[in-house]
Write a protein that binds this DNA or RNA. Sequence first.
DNA 1: TCGCCAAACTGGTCTATACCAGATGAGCGA
DNA 2: TCGCTCATCTGGTATAGACCAGTTTGGCGA
Lengths: 242, 242
Amino acid sequence: MEARANGEGSTPLYLRVRDQLANQIEAGLLAANTRLPSERVLAESHGTTRVTTRLALAQLEAEGRIYRSNRRGWFVSPPRLVYNPTQDYSFSDNVTSQGRTPATETLEVTTTEVAPWLANKTGLAVGDAIVRLRRRRQVDGRPVLVENIYLNPKRLPGIEQYDFNRSLWKLLREKFSVELQGKRIEMFPTALVDPQAEALGVNAGTAGLYVTRRSHDADGVFVEFDEEFWLHDTLSIQVEVQ
Amino acid sequence: MEARANGEGSTPLYLRVRDQLANQIEAGLLAANTRLPSERVLAESHGTTRVTTRLALAQLEAEGRIYRSNRRGWFVSPPRLVYNPTQDYSFSDNVTSQGRTPATETLEVTTTEVAPWLANKTGLAVGDAIVRLRRRRQVDGRPVLVENIYLNPKRLPGIEQYDFNRSLWKLLREKFSVELQGKRIEMFPTALVDPQAEALGVNAGTAGLYVTRRSHDADGVFVEFDEEFWLHDTLSIQVEVQ
DNA sequence: TCGCCAAACTGGTCTATACCAGATGAGCGA
DNA sequence: TCGCTCATCTGGTATAGACCAGTTTGGCGA
């Protein structure tokens, strides 16, 4: 707050490094998905060490301005994807309409029994049969989320035989005449830990947004429960009501 | 993935420290709002240095399990507050109904002109008069958010004279007969930077959730635009549709 | 008894260095 | 030309210190 003898002012060094990099990004000198200079180079060019430089980079990462790709380097984050979790929607259509390129990979399809925590979320009974679908979704080649989807096989018989690399919503509508009617959405920011972090190719502890969604059909029958794990810098939630 | 000669396994040391602390929290050995041992003590008791210990603490912080109070120590995070941004609601009532104690402080009330970015969000014209209200809100004595509220003085004449330490929604309803009708909500995880970080008493770069809300009345007239800056570990968003 | 002050303690910032592990690319050999 | 190997690059993890700047607390003095 007060003036210091130190000509640099009282701002910590790592925040000054942060500011310089942020300015370069904002000025357009560093375009989206551009690689930053390596930590060693940045450290030397700012007259400091890697430890301090990494503090500055971690700040920018927390703000969602840059992201890291394991042992490959730091990159400038592209704009956030606008996402409305209350709508039935096709990820693919949504991404495409924003001028980006989507991709979906099905990681796993299994039939298991409802665990207690899931019973609590879905209203099903513990031990009921449930179809579990695990997918990873990318935007412009970067994985941005993994999701676990739990489908009610009573309402959706034979669902496990279909191709899940397309829009699930369209599948439900066309093959099972499901019009999703009510949704209960919960979400909070947290760090991504291991099965999810690994699937997204990021370090455990990377900031994320956890989104869950429970949907039922027009008759009030439970249809599906979603768990989505997003990288925190990749999305902006948008909801409209009434 | 493969077995190592190292008896500790291949997990990095800071993640093993993290796990030990997380287990103690989950086992209930460390209750909500309890202070953890100091970094120096933790470092010694785990046979490592402060740098590594701080990595472990930063992980737990990112997950929302612990939080820091500037130069006072690390504390166990209490449960997240459940919050529905689509509802007209009283913060005070909401917090109280979850068995917690709320507090609100009005930091600033000013009348200014609509800036371009705000015009873009509200639909007002650049240069129009607008009332700006800045508040800080606490739960159990911990500040959890700061908010900037922009109120339309055309729809709410004399609004700047009221007491803002109570529910704004009730004020609008009782004094101006406003029934908020439509809302457009946007939110994304990001780091809290300086005016907000300082108001909340946290370091710049602390993880947060940025929430904006635009409301109009039954006639479609713009009433208010909110910007809320939450600490990321303090809330869980819950939305219900149709 | 009360209030103030100083010591002790806390996290915050920073240097300097080391080695590990995955990603990459140049160049060699078939 | 194609495929593989290996040196070199990257970030990831870790040690061992140092000093700074707020917070807390215990004890002293009025």
